[in-house]
Simulated assay, not measured.
Amino acid sequence: MASDPALVLLTAEEYRRASIILEGVPGTAAHLDPRSLVPGMTYVAFATELYFKFLFLRDKGKDAPNEHDLRKLFRMLRRDIQKRIKTKWESPVAGVLIIRNPIAAATRKPHPDFDETLRLSANAFIRLRYAYQYPRSALNYIGGDIMECARDVIYEDYPTEYAASRLPLPPGAINKSQITGVVDKLDTHPLRQPPKK
């Protein structure tokens, strides 16, 4: 039996939200704390995987294979979905540029294109979970904005059907001018409540 799409999506949302919390509130000492970067990137990588698996589940009516490689999962999506995610990535909103531009400035290299970003991020969840087995240089995960693009496609396609799975940003997590269509609701999510007796 296939998984409940609403719970797959809610789980992706929970990992996304946890990654934002670990990133810390901009302008505070906890923002981008180096001791929280690997766990935060792990959550982003896993949330991306789950968003892809949700899209697969909705399209095929069955669970995606037990796969963590983001590039393989992306290729399993319908071509039109792939195109929409890629198009969104190639036309970033201001908040994404705030992330991409400092990376490019720090490395003195232009940010890779979509396909290269997906390639570099393909095994992020596997590597980040076992960070102690890899050199720090192998732990860079730059696919967070791919996650946001996949999420945007999902909520464009299912604006009301999965509204209950959509989680708000944590308080103070983002500058108010960067919020684009975030729905605020209580942290006690109805899909995670124990069944009533």
Rank of each mutant, 00 (worst) to 15 (best):
E148V: 12
T107N: 07
F56M: 07
P135D: 11
Y132G: 13
P34Y: 02
A138Q: 14
H111L: 07
D63W: 03
A64T: 09
G143M: 00
P110N: 12
Q178W: 15
L73R: 04
I21M: 01
F56E: 06
T107L: 15
Y15E: 08
Y43C: 12
N101M: 06
Y155I: 08
D115K: 10
R75K: 15
V44F: 03
P112C: 04
Y134Q: 05
I142V: 13
E148Q: 13
A131R: 08
P102Y: 07
L50M: 07
Q133A: 12
A163E: 15
T48I: 02
E23P: 01
P5I: 00
E49R: 13
K176L: 13
D80I: 01
L97Q: 08
L57V: 08
L169E: 12
R79L: 12
L167N: 04
N123Y: 07
K86M: 14
E49W: 01
T48F: 13
E161H: 12
K60P: 00
A2H: 09
T28A: 06
A104G: 08
L10E: 05
L55S: 11
A104W: 05
A6V: 02
K196I: 10
H31R: 15
R78I: 06
G61N: 04
A131W: 10
R79D: 11
A2P: 15
I154T: 04
L97H: 09
Q82N: 11
H189W: 03
I179D: 07
S91N: 14
G172L: 06
P92M: 06
V183Q: 14
H189E: 14
T48M: 12
V153R: 00
L70A: 03
P112F: 00
I20V: 15
A104E: 14
G143P: 00
S36H: 08
P195S: 10
W89M: 09
V44A: 10
F125H: 15
E156H: 10
K196F: 05
A138H: 14
D4N: 15
L7N: 14
L7A: 04
